[in-house]
Design a protein around this nucleic acid. Sequence first.
DNA 1: GTGGTTTTGGACCGGCAAGTCCAATCTCTG
DNA 2: CAGAGATTGGACTTGCCGGTCCAAAACCAC
Lengths: 208, 208
Amino acid sequence: MTFTRKGLATRQRIIDGAAEYLRSDEPGEMTLDDVRAVTRTTKGQIYRYFPGGKEDLLLEVAKYESERVLDEQQPHLGRLDSWEAWDAWRIALIARYRAQGRQCPLGSLLNQVGTVAGSAEVVTTLLKRWQVFIERGIASMQEQGEVRHDLDVEKMAAAFIVGIQGGVNVLRVTGETTHLESMLDILIEHLRERERAAAPLPGKPAVR
Amino acid sequence: MTFTRKGLATRQRIIDGAAEYLRSDEPGEMTLDDVRAVTRTTKGQIYRYFPGGKEDLLLEVAKYESERVLDEQQPHLGRLDSWEAWDAWRIALIARYRAQGRQCPLGSLLNQVGTVAGSAEVVTTLLKRWQVFIERGIASMQEQGEVRHDLDVEKMAAAFIVGIQGGVNVLRVTGETTHLESMLDILIEHLRERERAAAPLPGKPAVR
DNA sequence: GTGGTTTTGGACCGGCAAGTCCAATCTCTG
DNA sequence: CAGAGATTGGACTTGCCGGTCCAAAACCAC
């Protein structure tokens, strides 16, 4: 069973349509009939190109959206080598999510983590790749002496990942990006902290 | 239509059972038959005590779990007035989520945000209350001079909320609490930063 | 244009799960 | 203990949705 060009085009149309639907105003539960309606296709076609049925399709969509998420942050994400770049990235990220509002493609995927086998895998991979970009950025700043060398790069990058995930999550619930913004501000601010000569004032030293 | 003591007990049993089921190993989709099985009740009873059906029940469970989430962090959360308290809270939080693993009651709720009308409201309220506890904690530390006064309390508390949400989210996907831990460490570390006399070294001043 | 292959359309099936209904039973009050 | 009202059990209805199937149409190579 091989696909011709036409077949592959149809297949892609289905993925696009499903992805768009999930990203749109009312995902909740996506039925195959929804997909059919959106993509102007039929059950026959869906099952032809996604033999595993709904689950199969959802997984493809997950992969597809994973790509998108990272792509949309470029070129900033790949070039976090100056404070200006970090700022540009922050701004782009916030703008993107603000525009997106409550709908989150990744969020919709996360919802299926329990349901669709393999989707946890996909998301984990995405987060991993995302984190690596950030790690590179921080390392680059360290090399330039812009970030102190005793900062744990991996940990800090992990915090960014967590922050973004959490921020988006809060956004999904409240519809506000303020929390996401707060988090990014604080993390970047923290990134800019210099080491200190000695512990000042009362309390314990600042660096654990 | 009034409920007797017996009736209320049944009602509560249904909520407890449903909550426990959602928290247990295989939520995915909870059907009313699942609830029936777990709580030893019948459809008749479920509809008697939750006239709105499934949605109605889920909302009650959401409220119930909201309470739990905060309760489980007490007494620490209510008394964040020393570094020891913050540490105890952090430890309790991590232990709690580690024990819980991939299952997240709040997460299950979040999944329904799109589906169940009113659940966004419930979660928003929860986050708000949670944040207030943290704000009080930070303010208390400021009063004691343990935290610098130019720190934006609300913003910082928001970051904690975001961090926890994100950490739990990552936990749900990866099964690891490391990200959550990184985030909490960094935020608390940041909380401990003292203001600095002047901008040192190259780069811009640390405080934006 | 002919035959083989791919693509498409859509009728159909089967099961599951939400929700309805009512008769039987229990419980509380006077 | 009588009777009203609350509670319970579970059969039944309904509609949706994933999945199957196959025949018609389109496409392609020779």
